[in-house]
């Protein structure tokens, strides 16, 4: 792999009410961050089926970011708690599969935290970039 040109493929699964709105706010404030993330919007992180994470990694994603509302701020009361629990389990699963668990990250970005969204994305991109391409990439196709 041409190490220098390699750009990570990162999937961002975000909730409609907090993190997607936060990402929009980063946009209207013109806060710049690296473009190496693609967003899938769900209504709530509670909707994040472990299957989505597995599918992304099997398809060759180098990283997955799940981002929702802060605890206590979930638009649907407690979807983010349930997502956080699932992500915890998913992380240990990834480890057992031989994949660095840092490739999966859950964050909490509210609708007013545009600047934080930019920091989070940059941080995720940096982390995944330092880990290099996913070893599962070969199996994707």
């Amino acid at each position: 792999m041409a190490e220098k040109d390699w750009k990570p493929q990162i999937l961002g699964i975000v909730c409609n009410w907090c993190s997607y709105a936060g990402a929009d706010l980063a946009g209207s404030a013109r806060t710049q961050y690296p473009p190496d993330i693609r967003i899938v919007r769900l209504m709530c992180t509670g909707r994040v089926d472990p299957l989505f994470i597995m599918k992304a990694f099997v398809d060759g994603a180098d990283g997955v970011l799940v981002s929702g509302c802060h605890f206590g701020d979930c638009h649907y009361l407690e979807g983010n708690y349930k997502a956080a629990k699932r992500m915890f389990i998913m992380k240990s699963l990834l480890k057992n599969m031989g994949l660095e668990d840092k490739r999966l990250r859950m964050t909490f970005v509210s609708a007013s935290e545009g600047a934080k969204w930019a920091v989070v994305v940059k941080d995720v991109v940096d982390t995944v970039t330092s880990l290099g391409p996913s070893p599962l990439k070969e199996f994707g196709h």
Partner: peptide, 18 residues
């Protein structure tokens, strides 16, 4: 989940990565 059904979301993930 209407409008966010598993095949729809998985199609999005696949479309991104594959």
């Amino acid at each position: 989940m209407q409008h966010f059904a598993t095949p729809q979301v998985v199609a999005q993930i696949d479309a991104f990565l594959l």
